[in-house]
């Protein structure tokens, strides 16, 4: 355990390596600021700065540029443009149809905000922070490391409260969009699922619960997927550290195998970062679409379970 804590730089167990770390705590024990919050702010700034850069590159140029004004010259901007185009045309438009253009700003923001947070979590900012402050003794504030506090680091989307906040926004958007699309009467009628009246006492509570369960499922899915992968990485790093520190016939192979495993899992995490951002956005789109198609209620519910397993 002690050598594992050496690699995870102050953490006593793998979970401690991946959880949110407080920066400021008041006298009542409430966390005022934590590393995840800094991550959220940084990811928001990244989204805005990168977004403005990409928007400038993607927007049609001046007529004086000739035919080049139609071309996105920057490769990164082109990649983002392709992702935006794919999400709009291949993912959202088949589900939302005419409402696509109105909903895309929100859905794009959901996707990229979660994606940036997921990717930030793959950068060992917390380890660098602890190394520089605690181990290297740069004199910034070593006491923070001793108290296991951090300015920045970790993965914001592996905090159930952060994913709950995002899901709350998604849930509000789903239901407001449904009310706008169906009207208040239509929205209430939707809770009956077009079932016979004698089934209403069962159906209506289920539908009402479903209204809350959908965003809760979004929150838990994102939180669980991001947390599990990071814990796995931390555990494997712990194995690698213990193996190399032990340095004997068993320790070295364990360290090498675990090190290779960490690299493989990191690539998987990179994929999961994109996948979970997509799944959150896609399921939000599906839930929005469910509150619009009157005649396809049964059909939609038949498919509702499928993406929920993603």
């Amino acid at each position: 355990m002690s050598s594992m804590s050496s690699l995870t730089l102050g953490a006593g167990d793998p979970v401690a390596h991946v959880i949110n770390h407080p920066t400021f705590v008041n006298e009542s024990g409430w966390v005022i600021w934590s590393s995840a919050q800094t991550n959220l702010v940084v990811s928001g700034l990244i989204l805005l700065f990168v977004g403005f850069f990409v928007a400038k590159a993607v927007a049609t140029g001046n007529e004086s540029d000739g035919h080049k004004r139609w071309i996105t010259n920057n490769r990164f901007a082109h990649m983002v443009e392709v992702i935006c185009g794919y999400l709009r045309e291949s993912t959202v438009r088949p589900l939302l149809g005419e409402r696509t253009n109105k909903m895309m700003p929100f859905l794009w923001t959901v996707f990229f905000f979660i994606l940036i947070n997921n990717l930030l979590g793959l950068i060992p900012i917390l380890d660098l922070h602890n190394l520089l402050l605690g181990e290297a003794g740069l004199g910034l504030n070593p006491e923070m490391v001793a108290k296991h506090q951090a300015f920045i680091g970790g993965t914001a989307t592996q905090s159930i409260f952060v994913t709950a906040g995002l899901s709350l926004i998604a849930g509000l958007m789903i239901n407001f969009s449904g009310i706008k699309e169906l009207g208040v009467a239509g929205y209430i009628k939707h809770l009956t699922a077009d079932a016979p009246i004698f089934v209403w006492p069962i159906i209506i509570p289920i539908e009402i619960m479903g209204t809350f369960i959908k965003p809760i499922a979004l929150a838990i899915r994102l939180f669980a997927n991001m947390t599990a992968g990071h814990i796995l990485v931390a555990v494997l790093l712990g194995f690698a550290a213990d193996g190399f520190v032990k340095g004997d016939v068993i320790g070295i192979p364990v360290g090498v195998i675990s090190g290779v495993g960490v690299i493989a899992i990191y690539f998987l995490e990179l994929f999961v970062a994109f996948l979970q951002a997509f799944v959150f956005m896609f399921l939000t789109t599906v839930f929005i679409s469910l509150l619009a198609h009157h005649g396809e209620h049964d059909h939609d519910h038949a498919h509702e379970g499928a993406p929920a397993h993603a």
């Binding site: 979970v15 966390v31 959220l40 409260f161 906040g165």
Partner: peptide
């Protein structure tokens, strides 16, 4: 030395509010 992946409300409310505001 002992941590949980699910934070207490005292630790989680501020990140949640921040997430909502930033978003």
């Amino acid at each position: 030395h002992k941590s949980s992946v699910i934070e207490s409300p005292k630790a989680g409310i501020a990140p949640m509010v921040t997430a909502i505001l930033v978003f």
